[in-house]
């Protein structure tokens, strides 16, 4: 067993650009974070903030070209994923790192049975025989709470409902007992009651199996329910990073604050009017020289245009373990 305190995943300075006909798009800009065993890191941001691209860059899931992972280090245990050959990387994907994507219908293969698809990683990575893999696939379906698993394992994806399909995806992702599970908006396509089922299931499985989870979402409510730490992304960079309670109770970045204020709730006081963040998210057509949120920020001042703020710890913990924020205004003035 590895050292409990050592991170499962340690990402430093990850930078990804896309080459397009209109020039480069800087989708991910010097993103750093680390994850310990059994920890859930919530990644929030709007569409285009770079949260999915970050996670796909980690394990080489982006087509290159147009994408290019330009800089950075991604340590999974003791190995740097960015330095690995394509073949080695495909041994890591599915075995050490599992994935659950947003839309289970498009990520499952419609012409194979569910059994077939769960067995694939088991025979490919774990070296199980076909019979062993079949037996294990029934166990896995039971683990994710699919009733009548022995029969349903022979079904095709279209014979399951959306929530059940997402359970199948989770079963496939967990098949090889990965150290890290990347869940990219796993509940966004589902209805609220089904969403609740899947979230409870993931919490439960995490307690049982103890893997680290990166949970990407744009829903602050989901984050509050599941994450230990939260990373807020905007314009391809990390603007704030903190334990979940601090993100909700003392957000320091103006974007995080604004984001939390725009969400209405079902309990508590009902605001007469929603507060809004004016303007549009930026398109990162060049390497950022200014704060990406500057144009929409209420506290915008001269320095924000002159220099892109760096992440700055707010407590005495090292960067990425406590609460840190990338904002000039918060450094110079800050919320009372």
């Amino acid at each position: 067993m590895a050292d409990e305190a050592a991170p499962v995943l340690d990402v430093r300075g990850l930078t990804t650009v896309f080459h397009t006909r209109q020039g480069e798009i800087h989708a991910v800009n010097a993103v750093s974070f680390a994850l310990k065993r059994g920890e859930v890191l919530g990644v929030v941001g709007e569409s285009g903030s770079g949260k999915s691209v970050t996670m796909m860059s980690l394990v080489g899931l982006l087509p290159t070209p147009p994408a290019e992972v330009r800089a950075g280090q991604v340590m999974l245990g003791t190995r740097d994923l960015l330095q690995m050959s394509a073949k080695d990387l495909s041994d890591v994907r599915g075995a050490k790192v599992g994935f659950v994507f947003q839309d289970p219908m498009t990520s499952l293969n419609p012409v194979f049975t569910v059994e077939n698809q769960i067995c694939e990683p088991l025979t490919r990575h774990m070296g199980l025989s076909k019979a062993q893999a079949r037996a294990r696939s029934v166990e896995l379906l039971e683990l994710v709470g699919i009733p009548d698993a022995a029969k349903r394992v022979k079904y095709y994806p279209h014979q399951f409902s959306g929530g059940m399909r997402q359970r199948v995806m989770i079963a496939i992702a967990l098949a090889c007992e990965p150290d890290l599970l990347i869940a990219d908006e796993p509940t966004t396509a589902l209805d609220v009651t089904i969403q609740a089922q899947i979230i409870e299931l993931m919490k439960d499985l995490q307690k049982k199996l103890g893997m680290a989870i990166i949970w990407i979402t744009h829903d602050m409510g989901v984050i509050a329910g599941i994450a230990d730490r939260v990373m807020v992304m905007y314009g391809g960079q990390v603007v704030e990073h903190a334990p979940v309670d601090q993100i909700f109770h003392s957000p320091q970045h103006p974007y995080t604050r604004a984001l939390l204020r725009t969400i209405p709730t079902i309990t508590g006081k009902r605001e007469a009017r929603l507060s809004v963040i004016e303007g549009q998210p930026p398109i990162m057509a060049q390497a950022p020289k200014a704060c990406p949120f500057g144009a929409r920020c209420a506290h915008h001042f001269a320095r924000c245009d002159a220099e892109n703020p760096q992440r700055r710890p707010l407590d005495c913990l090292p960067l990425g373990q406590g609460h840190d924020v990338a904002c000039h205004w918060s450094a110079e003035v800050g919320y009372a």
């Binding site: 609220v192 969403q195 609740a196 709730t265 309990t267």
Partner: peptide, 21 residues
């Protein structure tokens, strides 16, 4: 339906009990 809504409040998320359908 109401109990399934995810509330942006970590404490309430930890303490409340959901009705899981």
């Amino acid at each position: 339906l109401l109990s399934a809504v995810n509330e942006p409040n970590p404490e309430r998320a930890r303490t409340r009990s959901r009705i899981l359908l």
